[in-house]
Design a protein around this nucleic acid. Structure first.
Lengths: 165, 165
DNA sequence: CACTTATTATTAGTAAGTCACAATAAGGCG
DNA sequence: CGCCTTATTGTGACTTACTAATAATAAGTG
């Protein structure tokens, strides 16, 4: 529980540092995202409500959006999935998504520290000033691979569980 | 117009090769995506209707989904944008998106031929079998940069035009 | 403690699709 | 060529994930 308290204090300090008021809603959302990385807004709402039952969905959307703008949270949108959130920010790590079960794994930067930040522009393209390079690896995780080999049944057994690391 | 005909024939052949029937709806969608790369379903519908006015939105969604599964089209979802489609498939090129105006540019592979296909897994992660690595560069394009410097007004002039290369 | 205004709750509304099923039309066959 | 099967498209209802407008609440300041 000391850990929980420490976390609260750390989040509170970060909020103040960004000129934001420290509210129980923000703390509950931050704690929920921290405990359930790669979760969508709906799961975050459910998780946060265990400690703050009166929290509303709209507040979660507002808080997630604001904290993402502040870079206290990071948001990414895997294909065919609602947006997912995590507290791991600042490093430019990437994500691998299983196209069969939706599982998400963190992947560290492939090439040194700031890797993919230098796109190779086509001759006729007007280069942009790049700020982020999000790499989304898509593949099949070990469990799904095994599951596909054993039962020679429907090859489209794509389950819908997404989020919840 | 010969070019148009050739395109039709090529698409028709590809459809047959995939065991699909050749319909005017599919040809209209393919032609529309080809002429307007990086476009959302709604724009594709509008473009395709210039040559096939009775085409419906649902057909466009069905066709886009099916052709994407066949890898005749490629689909990607920039943050805060509906899914975009393009006919350039087979090479693993990537995309740069202007976070101000939504413009999308193609970017060739950064490191040789199949670059980012080798993620650096964390020690405790169960590696997946990677099939695609989608890199999404996000930055500010030259036009928007210029526009932001001249008028010292709202810094949040994010316009909504997306797609339509 | 009061007061200002950021933050949250309430309610309604939208964008971007998906789903179920009836109508149509490709492509194979006689 | 014309029929027949079934893939494909059209019609209409519905859903998911999220945004917008405004009223109620509560942080933080003096």
């Amino acid at each position: 529980m000391t850990e929980h308290f420490d976390g609260q204090e750390a989040w509170a300090a970060a909020l103040r540092a960004h000129g934001r008021r420290v509210t129980k809603q923000r703390l509950a959302v931050l704690a929920a995202v921290d405990r359930h990385p790669h979760s969508p807004a709906e799961s975050i709402l459910a998780a946060a409500r265990t400690e703050l039952p009166e929290l509303t969905a709209q507040s979660v959307y507002v808080v997630l959006g604001d904290l993402t703008d502040l870079h206290m949270l990071r948001r990414f949108e895997p294909p065919h999935s609602p947006a997912l959130y995590e507290t791991r920010v600042g490093d430019n790590h990437h994500h691998a998504i299983c196209i069969s079960c939706g599982r998400v794994e963190d992947v560290d930067c492939a090439v040194g520290h700031a890797p993919c930040l230098t796109p190779h522009w086509n001759p006729d393209a007007k280069p942009m000033t790049i700020q982020i390079a999000d790499v989304m690896y898509q593949g099949i995780c070990q469990d799904c691979q095994r599951a596909q080999q054993l039962p020679p049944q429907s090859s489209l057994t794509r389950n819908k569980e997404i989020g919840e690391q």
